[in-house]
């Protein structure tokens, strides 16, 4: 049960990363590798601020902004300095490694007793119980309370509830954004830059904005991850792009549609499903050290299978 809830929560938190990858890889068609660095950046900024006693919401907000700044840097390098997009991402990611060490001052920062967004969720749950008791509904009064109250009070459940709420809010926000004039222009930028340029959109700026949003979301994932697991580590971002990409691919397969709303739901489902699969695999004795290899092979398989499939069908279909 705790394993299940644990991987659910992780899956939901990493759905933010999947959102970021979805925006850069799928919507902007920009192969952005910044995420490995910007996830850690979000985590280290959040950790540094929390340890120094910042309000957790403010700390998380600043973490998101820092990620957006990293994404914008990649955007400017790629679009204005005309550096290959992959390379621009790698450059920023590499630079961020040092930045992250600077921000944290060391390679690992435990949060200790610092207040976090997630611990405030617990307080919220507590408060609601107090409130219910205060207005005269006490545990056991209606029978079902005996079943639900332990859950409501449970730390894990309140955390997952809050994370779910945040993911839902971000998801709805994204769906809404991509229906606005600005968001639609961003989708067109990825789909056909020549066309949207001829319609008056500054493709460089639009791509940079998109990368800022994508990496802001990725940093958000990093900030939540740190608050969930109770520490930040300079290595925490390694392989995150591939992980996010795996979630996006699983999601696309699950929903089978390119409509943005579906893709976003798919990314959440993909992220959660991937976490569950990982948990099960670990249970069955997968060596955690092999996890990234397995993930990479999985993504590779997902990328080449459709082509192999097509080729195979061509081979099998009778020659005309």
């Amino acid at each position: 049960m705790t394993l299940l809830i644990g991987s659910l929560t992780m899956g939901l938190i990493l759905a933010l990363l999947a959102f970021g990858v979805l925006i850069s890889f799928r919507i902007l068609a920009f192969r952005d590798l910044t995420a490995d660095g910007s996830l850690t950046l979000g985590g280290s900024v959040a950790a540094a601020l929390l340890v120094s006693g910042w309000n957790p919401w403010a700390a998380t907000f600043v973490a998101v902004l820092s990620g957006a700044l990293a994404g914008a840097t990649t955007g400017v390098l790629a679009m204005k300095c005309k550096i290959n997009g992959l390379l621009a991402g790698i450059l920023v990611m590499t630079a961020l490694y040092s930045v992250n060490l600077r921000v944290m001052g060391k390679s690992n920062v435990p949060l200790m007793e610092s207040r976090t967004i997630l611990s405030s969720a617990e307080q919220l749950a507590d408060a609601s119980t107090h409130w219910r008791i205060w207005i005269g509904l006490w545990p056991g009064q209606f029978g079902y309370e005996d079943v639900f109250l332990p859950l409501a009070l449970d730390h894990d459940m309140s955390v997952i509830g809050l994370v779910l709420l945040m993911i839902a809010a971000v998801g709805v926000g994204m769906v809404a954004f991509f229906r606005t004039n600005l968001g639609l222009a961003m989708r067109a930028t990825g789909d056909n830059p020549d066309m949207i340029r001829a319609l008056g959109v500054d493709v460089d700026w639009m791509t940079t904005l998109g990368l800022a949003i994508a990496n802001g979301l990725t940093a958000f994932a990093g900030a939540l991850l740190v608050q969930y697991q109770g520490f930040a580590d300079v290595q925490m971002g390694i392989g995150m792009v591939v992980l996010g990409f795996a979630s996006v691919i699983i999601g696309e397969t699950l929903v089978g549609s390119r409509i943005v709303g579906f893709l976003i739901c798919g990314a959440v489902m993909g992220s959660v499903l991937f976490r569950l699969l990982v948990a099960i695999a670990l249970r069955w004795g997968l060596n955690p050290n092999d996890l990234k290899l397995v993930t990479a092979v999985f993504v590779l398989a997902a990328l080449v299978t459709p082509d192999l499939w097509k080729a195979a069908r061509k081979q099998l279909s009778p020659a005309r």
């Binding site: 004039n181 639609l184 989708r187 056909n192």
Partner: peptide
């Protein structure tokens, strides 16, 4: 293929053109 965004709907392509050269804000497209 140059003049339209293939994965967007006809209506969305037209909506983009309805804003040619204008500011694109956060109103519904």
């Amino acid at each position: 293929f140059t003049g339209t965004a293939p994965h967007l709907s006809i209506a969305e392509n037209l909506a983009l053109a309805a804003k040619r050269g204008r500011a694109r804000g956060c109103g519904w497209a």
